[in-house]
């Protein structure tokens, strides 16, 4: 079941404030966070987060397409290696 619309999206308050302060100061330093459940809001776009996956912090650069998703969706907890003929799209938005 999805989250009630009445409540609105869950955003980690501490993380949100940190982003606000950084935006006002014009800084773009990656922010380490464990808040995988935090929804990505438009204010996060252009910032880089280091999202913990249970073992390490993975860099997540937030773009517009990612708004509405959770931070944890972009920090995989299982690493699959070996695809050498996958296409890598270097684009402004999300791949594929």
């Amino acid at each position: 079941m999805g989250r009630s619309l009445k409540k609105g999206p869950f955003v980690d308050e501490k993380l949100y404030r940190k982003v606000e302060v950084m935006t006002q100061a014009g800084r773009r330093v990656p922010i380490k966070t464990w808040a995988r459940r935090c929804t990505i809001v438009p204010e996060f776009v252009g910032h880089t987060f280091q999202v913990h996956n249970g073992r390490a912090f993975l860099e997540v650069f937030v773009t517009e397409d990612m708004v509405g998703h959770k931070l944890g969706e972009f920090s995989m907890t299982r690493t699959f290696r070996g695809h050498t003929n996958r296409k890598e799209g270097i684009r402004g938005g999300m791949k594929r």
Binding site: L58, F61, F74, M76, T79, R86, M94, K95
Partner: peptide, 10 residues
């Protein structure tokens, strides 16, 4: 190597 994530690969 390259790691696949839900967003940009790393």
């Amino acid at each position: 190597e390259i790691w696949e994530t839900g967003a940009h690969d790393l």
